[in-house]
Amino acid sequence: MSYLHVLNGDATLTLFKQSGLPGDVVICREMMCEGKAKYTKDLITFFESRAKHLEFQYGIDKQTYHIHVMQELEKIDHFGPTADEIILWFEYDLFCQINMLFILHYIISRLEIIPPISIVDLPHHRQAEDLPGLFEKRVKLQSEDLTMAADVWDAWCLDTPVVLETISKLSTGNLVHIPAALQAHLKRFPDITTGLSIIENYFLLRLMLGNYRWYDLYMLFWGELEIYGFSNFQLDILINRMVRSGVIEEQDQMLKITSLGREILGEEENYLDYISMEHRWLGGVRLANTPWRWDSSIEGLVAIII
């Protein structure tokens, strides 16, 4: 059997090599849950838009993106047509699940003949010796699963989150973690009262209890909101935005909440009055233009007049 394994990030590669599993390997080095995802069926157009946005908003050089992301994914074009099976190794969190959807979109878009595709339900904590057993328990995707994946990816790139909210309440076949990941994603929309995303709200609530070093705060986040699977890079960007907006300040390498942060938590002020959303995107939704807000009282999105 000829296998093509798609791993989410380089961290899994070392364990995979130690596992002794046969097959070619492709590394997905994207973070599709972060930033703009243009709605288009043309992958070249998509990557051009994505690279431009990541360079402007996140400081990721276009050439670096081309070499480390696009050229790596092009291995799917080379190995995919001759593979007897493509196996996707992704965890249950939002970061991994959206990357997995994109990889499925890439395979469907690029390969004329699609070999059988399986997914490994990869736990967050694992050792190299665990991988062969996980490989044996992989789940083969059916045609309806591929259709669902394509529909969810399209919905991710739309300029409205309404379709994603609908999908988050449905059964998604063998893509069992998609609903929970989408529900976590929707809570990233600004709160209807405070303007805070669930992650910004979490950080302020934690800092209400005391000051923290950056990494210690991240460790708490990773333990309590593991569903997001965010990297240091993403959290650094978010915290820096909060510092610039004046809701958090840093003193002697310690983060602390400001009086403005306390007022926002107390619903006396709104976070959106103090931070620019001009180039902020959640998938295909440009936050500066969207009327959609998260309402925790109904656990759903509502539209406001803007």
Rank of each mutant, 00 (worst) to 15 (best):
V26Q: 06
L13D: 05
F16S: 00
W222E: 10
D145Y: 00
L122C: 00
S276F: 05
C33A: 12
H68Q: 07
G229K: 00
G9M: 06
I248F: 07
P291M: 08
R293A: 07
F95M: 03
I227Y: 00
F46M: 03
I98S: 12
E72R: 09
L204H: 01
E249W: 01
E48Q: 10
A51N: 10
F221R: 01
I306A: 13
R286P: 07
I76E: 02
M70Q: 14
L204A: 02
L282D: 00
H185I: 05
G20E: 04
P132Y: 09
Y106A: 00
I76M: 10
F16D: 06
S245L: 03
E129Y: 14
E200F: 00
S118W: 07
E30K: 02
K75N: 01
S245V: 10
M148R: 12
L260V: 04
T172P: 03
E136L: 14
I114F: 15
F90Y: 14
E299I: 10
D151S: 08
S171V: 03
C96T: 07
M32E: 06
L175R: 11
A149V: 06
W89D: 12
L186W: 04
T45D: 13
E144G: 02
H279K: 07
H125F: 13
H78I: 15
V176Y: 14
I306V: 08
T258L: 10
C28F: 13
N99V: 03
H279D: 14
D24W: 15
I108D: 04
